[in-house]
Amino acid sequence: MAARGNSRFKWIVPFLYIVFLMLPIYWLLNMSFKTTNEILGTFSLVPQEFTLDNYRAIFTDPTWYSGYINSLIYVCINTVISVSVALPAAYAFSRYRFLGDKHLFFWLLTNRMAPAAVFALPFFQLYSALNLFDTHIAVALAHCLFNIPLAVWILEGFMSGVPKELDETAYIDGYPFWKFFGKIFLPTIAAGIGVAAFFCFMFSWVELLLAKTLTSVDAKPIAAVMTRTASSSGYELGLLAAAGTLTMIPGAIVIFFVRNYIAKGFALGRV
């Protein structure tokens, strides 16, 4: 590490940045412990009449908590599908040259770029025509549009970091492809798989436009339940804040598990 004159005060920059990040989160948390009357009536940095009613309301009302379950279900299905089909594809991109490989890779990336707003209406028609409207699988498949390219991109980066000699040695030793892939190669890039899964989880969890378009009741994600409740029963700010706070928890949990790889993952495995 470079020892520089100003290094004693360097922590101030990230510290101030983190304070800036935490302020809106704190405000949301603060509101979630207040009654709606208190939110609208008095302005205070800490709740005056501390209440857990907002959380209680969410955990006892099925329209609320089923939103969380729905979101978690389609996010998990999507993560499993995306990572498992991306693994062989990423291997192909990192190891072989084949007809149209560069074009194919770019085409995959363009889907990561496609604005969801463009696809909202056609998606609705497509999945309605297949009788999949308002199912978890519909949202999980739709999110593949941007998650598969991302998973391929990340995994390809991690796989390119594994020397090709590993493959060659295994083939010389007489391993068939699938045995080598499952027994030797996958454990080698376990970190990469974890990171790819994390990113699929994350992007499927935060996306709302497609999830909302493709569901009405049975598979409605929590984020969409929030918008509906906000408009139908007046403006229940306390409830809204509590629901918002709860949506941060799954992210916080998964982030903890991949904390040591997260930076590398954001760099798509290639630094």
Partner: peptide, 25 residues
């Protein structure tokens, strides 16, 4: 690690919650 975990927080909040959070903030 602490910095990384805290800084990654905003990236994992559903986008409409980000909007709603900033609205009430």
């Amino acid at each position: 690690s602490v910095c990384l975990v805290l800084m990654a927080m905003p990236l994992l909040i559903p986008w409409n919650v980000v909007g709603a959070m900033w609205n009430i903030f």
